[in-house]
Design a protein around this nucleic acid. Structure first.
Length: 641
RNA sequence: GCCACUGUAGCUCAGUCGGCAGAGCGGCUGAUUCGUAAUCAGCAGGUCGGGGGUUCAAGUCCCUCCAGUGGCUCCA
C-alpha cells in the first residue's frame, strides 16, 4: 500500500464532534473502535459521509463517520441482508445447481429467491445445518471490487446475476462478497463475519410468481436475523405467544365462528360470534344516527348490465359469483355501490338533499382466489359497515374530515394501532386523468388538513377511485386493510346521476365510498388477536359467570344470574358439577370478564365475591354495586373490565 | 390461481417395516358438595378428508380430487 496515497492531515469527524486522524490503511472499524472502545462490539458497519460501509472500508480521506448497530434501521438491514447471503451460501452447498437471484431485507426480515427445483423441508434442514457450520467457522465477509469482465466470468453460470451486471450502469463499481467458498454479486455492505449471524432463523420457504410470464417460479426462503441467540429466542417466544392468539385458534376455543370445506371462505357465525357482530353493528349504527346517515337495503344480485355500467364487469369479472336466471346473467354484488347509485338515480334530486349518506350492511360476495383465503381475514362472503356519500365538491373536505376523526375514535375505543395509506390511480382504471388528479388531491388535502400521517401507495387505488385505506395488524404483524375512504367521480357519471344546483343547472355529484371498521369478518379477526380473546366487557359473549360454591347455593346463583340478565348483562349461572377451583379455571380460560362466587357467606349477607378478569384477588361487593359497576363498564364501552 | 407442506375421535396429537384404531383434554354416567386456575372411577365416541389403484392385507405405498397452513399474486 502506498502511504503517500492519502493526505497526511485526513481526519474522521464523529457524531460527538471528535476528530481522529485517518491513515491510508486505517479502516472504519479501527476508527470506530478507537472512538468508542466499549461500544465497539455492537458496531456492525459504519456510515462514512452518510453512506453505509463495511468496517473493513479504508476511507483514506477526510469525512464524517458514525457507527451502525443492529438498533439502527440501516444496521438492521445490513444484518438481514448478510443473513440472506448466509442462506444462499448454505443452499448452494446443499443444492449446487441452485442459482441465487436476489436477497433483500424486507420490512420484517429478509428473503432470498433462487432459480432451482421446488425445495423440500429436507433442503431447508440442510440449509440450517450449513448456516450453523458457517457461523461456527466465523467466516469473514470479504469485499472485492472487480472489473465487469471478471464479474461476468465469475457468474457465467447464473443468467440472473449476468442480468444484474448488465443492468449496472457503466462506470459504477461492481463488487462481490466472498463468504468462505461462496461468492455473491453485491453492493454491500455486510457484517464483518458470519458469527454476527448467530441469531438468524429460517422462517419458511415457498414459491414466488415467475419473474416473467412463462418462466418457472422462483423458490423463496424467508428468514429473520438477530445479532445473538438470546434476541432470537426472545423473538421466537413472542412469535409463539402470537400464534396462540391466532383468531382461528381463539375462534374455535371460544366458539365464535367456524368454516366448513363444503362452503370454503364462507363464515358460520356461532352464537358467541354473532354477539360480537351485533355489538359492533350497534356501535356503528349509533354513530350513523348521530352523523346523519340513512340506512338502506338493496338487492344482493343485479343483472349483468348494472355491472357493465359500474365497470365491475370489465374490471372485476374474475371475482364475481355469477348466477343465471331468465336467460340473463346475474352477478352477486361484490360491493354495495350499484344499489346506492340506483337509489340516488331513482328520481330527480335537489342540492338540498346533499350530502346524502346511504349506509348499507349487506352480505357481499367476492370469488377470491382459493389460495388467498385466510380465516376471517379473507373470506368470500362478508358484510361491510358500508356507506355511500353523495356530495358536492365543496362538501368533500368536511365529510372526509368527519370520517378521519371517526376512524381515529374507533381505533381509540379498541386501542388499535392504525396506519393510513393513500392509494392512487391503478394501471387498469376508469375515467380521465383530470378527474383522478382532482380526487387524489382532495384526499391528500384532507389527510394533511387533519394532520393524519400517511403512506403513499401509487397505483394501488380501486379501478374507479383513489382511496385512503386504514391498515391494522394481526398478531404476527401482517397488515390488513380494514377501513377505506374512496373519492369517486366515475361511477356517478356512468350511472348518469344528477342533482339540480341552486342556479338551476344539473350537476353530477361526487361519491365517497367508505367503511369505518371495514368488514365485521376482518375487523373481528384483527380484534380477536388484538385482545387475545379477552374481550372488553361490552363485547364479551358472556360478561358474568355466577358460580355456586356447592349445590346448596345453586338456586341462589340462578336467581342472581337472572337478576343480572334483567339488568341488561349477559350472565350465566354455572353448575356445581366440579370443584370450585376447576370451575374458576374454566371461566378464566373462557376469559369471562367477571366471575361471581356465591357461598353461604354471600347468601347470609347479600354480597357477592367478585373476581375481575386480570386480578386474582376476589373482592366482596354488594349486588347493587356490582350491577352499577358492570353496566357502566358496558355502557361506556370501556376496554378493560 | 401458483409452489411446498398438512389432513387420524368434538379438540390437541401418537400410530415403527403395510399385519386387530390409540392417548390426553372435552362429553356422558356415577361417586364426591368442594371458598377463587385442573377430585376420583367407569362408559360412549372413528367412512383414518373424498374417490380410484397396488397388495393375501392399506391410516401407512401410488394416482387423483377437495380442504386447510405458509408464502407468492391479489384485496375489506
Amino acid at each position: 500500500m502506498d502511504d503517500n496515497a492519502a493526505s497526511p492531515e485526513a481526519t474522521a469527524r464523529f457524531p460527538d464532534g471528535r476528530l481522529l486522524p485517518v491513515g491510508p490503511a486505517t479502516t472504519v472499524g479501527e476508527l470506530l473502535a478507537t472512538w468508542s472502545a466499549d461500544r465497539a462490539p455492537r458496531f456492525l458497519a459504519g456510515l462514512w459521509d452518510g453512506r453505509p460501509v463495511d468496517l473493513s472500508f479504508r476511507p483514506g480521506a477526510t469525512g464524517t463517520l458514525a457507527p451502525l448497530t443492529f438498533e439502527d434501521r440501516a444496521g438492521w438491514e445490513i444484518l438481514q441482508h448478510s443473513a440472506a447471503h448466509l442462506v444462499a451460501k448454505a443452499l448452494v452447498e446443499a443444492v449446487p445447481e441452485a442459482r441465487p437471484t436476489h436477497g433483500p431485507p424486507t420490512a420484517d426480515g429478509f428473503f432470498y429467491d433462487f432459480d432451482v427445483r421446488p425445495l423440500t423441508p429436507a433442503d431447508i434442514s440442510e440449509v440450517e445445518a450449513g448456516m450453523r457450520r458457517s457461523i461456527e467457522r466465523r467466516e469473514p465477509f470479504v469485499r472485492r471490487e472487480v472489473p465487469r469482465a471478471e464479474a461476468e466470468r465469475l457468474f457465467a453460470a447464473n443468467p440472473h446475476k449476468l442480468r444484474y451486471i448488465a443492468e449496472t450502469p457503466a462506470g459504477e463499481t461492481i463488487s462481490v462478497y466472498d463468504t468462505g467458498s461462496f461468492t455473491d454479486l453485491c453492493r454491500g455492505p455486510h457484517v464483518p463475519d458470519t458469527h454476527w449471524l448467530e441469531g438468524v432463523h429460517v422462517l419458511g420457504f415457498s414459491a414466488t410468481e415467475p419473474e416473467a410470464p412463462g418462466r418457472p417460479p422462483l423458490q423463496r426462503i424467508r428468514g429473520v436475523g438477530f445479532p445473538s441467540r438470546t434476541e432470537l429466542a426472545q423473538f421466537l417466544k413472542l412469535r409463539a405467544e402470537a400464534a396462540a392468539r391466532d383468531h382461528r385458534v381463539l375462534g374455535q376455543r371460544q366458539e365464535l365462528f367456524l368454516f366448513d370445506e363444503r362452503a370454503p371462505g364462507f363464515t358460520f357465525w356461532l352464537p358467541n360470534g354473532m354477539i360480537l357482530v351485533r355489538e359492533l353493528e350497534r356501535y356503528v349504527t349509533e354513530h350513523l344516527r348521530r352523523a346523519g346517515y340513512s340506512e338502506v337495503r338493496t338487492p344482493l344480485a343485479f343483472r349483468r348490465s348494472v355491472f357493465e355500467i359500474s365497470g365491475h364487469w370489465e374490471h372485476y369479472r374474475e371475482n364475481f359469483f355469477v348466477s343465471e336466471a331468465d336467460d340473463d346473467e346475474y352477478g352477486w354484488k361484490p360491493m354495495n355501490c350499484p344499489g346506492a347509485m340506483l337509489i340516488f338515480g331513482s328520481r330527480p334530486r335537489s342540492y338540498r338533499e346533499l350530502p346524502m349518506r346511504l349506509a348499507e350492511f349487506a352480505p357481499l360476495h367476492r370469488r377470491e382466489a382459493s389460495g388467498t383465503l385466510h380465516g376471517l381475514m379473507r373470506v368470500r362472503e362478508f358484510v361491510q359497515d358500508d356507506a355511500h356519500l353523495f356530495v358536492t365538491d365543496e362538501q368533500i373536505g368536511a365529510e372526509i374530515a368527519v370520517l378521519l376523526a371517526w376512524i381515529r375514535e374507533a381505533c381509540a375505543t379498541f386501542r388499535l394501532d392504525y396506519a393510513f395509506e393513500l392509494s392512487t390511480r391503478p394501471a387498469s382504471s376508469l375515467g380521465d386523468t383530470a378527474d383522478w388528479e382532482k380526487a387524489e388531491a382532495a384526499l391528500r388535502q384532507a389527510l394533511e388538513a387533519n394532520g393524519a400521517a400517511y403512506r403513499a401507495s401509487p397505483g394501488e387505488g380501486a379501478f374507479y377511485a383513489p382511496k385512503i385505506d386504514i391498515h391494522l395488524k394481526d398478531s404476527l404483524g401482517r397488515p390488513w386493510q380494514t377501513g377505506t375512504i374512496q373519492l369517486d367521480y366515475q361511477m356517478p357519471r356512468r350511472f348518469g346521476l344528477q342533482y339540480q344546483a341552486p342556479d338551476g343547472t344539473l350537476r353530477t355529484p361526487a361519491v365517497i365510498h367508505r367503511t369505518i371498521l371495514g368488514s365485521w369478518e376482518r375487523f373481528l379477526g384483527v380484534l380477536t388477536e388484538h385482545v387475545g380473546g379477552r374481550w372488553p366487557p361490552w363485547l364479551a359473549p358472556v360478561q358474568v359467570t355466577v358460580l355456586p360454591v356447592t349445590d346448596r347455593q345453586g338456586e341462589a346463583a340462578t336467581a342472581i344470574a337472572a337478576e343480572l340478565t334483567s339488568a341488561g348483562l349477559r350472565a350465566k349461572a354455572g353448575a356445581s358439577d366440579a370443584t370450585l377451583p376447576k370451575r374458576i379455571r374454566e371461566a378464566e380460560l373462557d376469559r369471562v370478564p367477571y366471575i361471581l362466587v356465591v357461598g353461604d357467606k354471600e347468601i347470609a349477607d347479600g354480597s357477592l365475591s367478585l373476581r375481575i378478569r386480570g386480578s386474582k384477588a376476589p373482592r366482596s361487593i354488594s349486588r347493587a354495586e356490582f350491577v352499577a359497576y358492570a353496566t357502566a363498564k358496558v355502557r361506556n364501552r370501556e376496554f378493560e373490565p
